[in-house]
Design a protein around this nucleic acid. Structure first.
Lengths: 202, 202
DNA sequence: TAATTAAGGTACATGTTGTACCTTAATTAG
DNA sequence: CTAATTAAGGTACAACATGTACCTTAATTA
């Protein structure tokens, strides 16, 4: 009867099964209470495990969140962004493809998580600025590849600084993090037509 | 001797003197420990007042921070942004002027504060999205005024969506909040020449 | 000078943290 | 298949932060 519950308590999950359960509980919680109000105590309770287990693995809630982001990003893209970029036949198509892919990280990966990451960047801890710099450098390479397609096709591309090369990514971040609107295909097209093409196409 | 300290404890500041002391203590603290680690307890101690005084005035640390931001913004600009915008004789000059003024809000107003604001936006509380929407609408009006100058001078301006009109502000925000680089005049010029002029000038 | 206003101080229940230490289930090795 | 190892679950504790209640007392005002 009520002994069933007590009996089931003795089952101990381990490894991936446990971890994923913690990930999911964390994501649900962060949606409910927000990142600031997120506590290890609540996570442990929601994931039906103990704080001890959490502290053993992650020193701070950011460490946990960051791990979740990487896990989610992999799932959303199925690999590195630069490998997913293909020549669509036009700069417009390529840029639209890029925005769509990059947007999917935010859509699938969970806005709440990205928000937390962004916030921690603002706290300018050492490791965070490294994460940021790495991401930026990767993104610049993606854009070089993309603009390389255009040059090979004979499209006239402006020479711009590295800082400007990250514009497509910055726009997606602004849209997702600073505004809170739905990012449909129409919105992405507008970004390409009104901003990105004038900037990159001579 | 040591009674001097005890005697000085009996002096009670009130009103603006007290408030400004709290503002300053908060700004110093937030620079030291960051927004997440900021506590009313620490603020009270740093401002040499008591938690009671703080709780009476602000329900959350965000309420306090938001008030500080408004106070600082007023000081930085000395009025509303739209009133500060003047016709410099060219779109390039006008845009540079706009970026410089808007940047000063971040420089003078305190990056830490803006960061906190941004973060709370991510928590999508009711009042916060209102603050955001208001700011966006104001910024759109500023850009309309600025592009109006250009049209009157006979410069050819593209017709763009409201979403694109906020680009100058979004760029400053990205630079300040997502990156952590010094925003000198050269950087602002690059934003104007490589991004804003191609977007707005036909 | 008396009444009012607002700052300072104390106390308390509640919740979170980080750590230490122990028990016990699940896995692995001999 | 049993014993050793690994890792999860549980309890306890000191430290700190919160939000509230209630009281005292300095500063302002009427």
């Amino acid at each position: 009867m009520n002994e069933m519950n007590d009996a089931s308590k003795n089952v101990r999950r381990r490894g991936d099964a446990l971890i994923e359960s913690i990930y999911n509980a964390t994501i649900e919680l962060i949606k409910k209470v927000g990142y600031t109000n997120l506590t290890f105590q609540q996570i442990a309770h929601a994931a039906k495990t103990s704080r001890t287990v959490l502290y053993r693995r992650w020193n701070t809630k950011f460490d946990l969140i960051h791990e979740i982001m990487e896990y989610k990003t992999k799932n959303a893209l199925g690999g590195e962004l630069i490998d997913k970029i293909e020549d669509t036949g036009s700069l417009r198509g390529d840029l639209l493809q890029l925005l769509t892919l990059y947007q999917s990280i935010y859509t699938e990966g969970g806005l709440e998580i990205m928000n937390a990451i962004l916030f921690e960047i603002g706290q300018d801890s050492e490791k965070l600025s490294k994460i940021e710099t790495n991401a930026r450098n990767k993104n610049i390479l993606v854009m070089r590849k993309l603009l390389g397609f255009a040059k090979n096709r004979g499209e006239k591309i402006k020479e711009v600084s590295d800082a400007t090369l990250t514009l497509p990514f910055d726009l997606i971040r602004v849209e997702n993090l600073l505004r809170r609107e739905t990012m449909d295909a129409k919105r992405l097209e507008l970004l390409v037509d009104e901003i990105l093409l004038p900037v990159f196409l001579a």
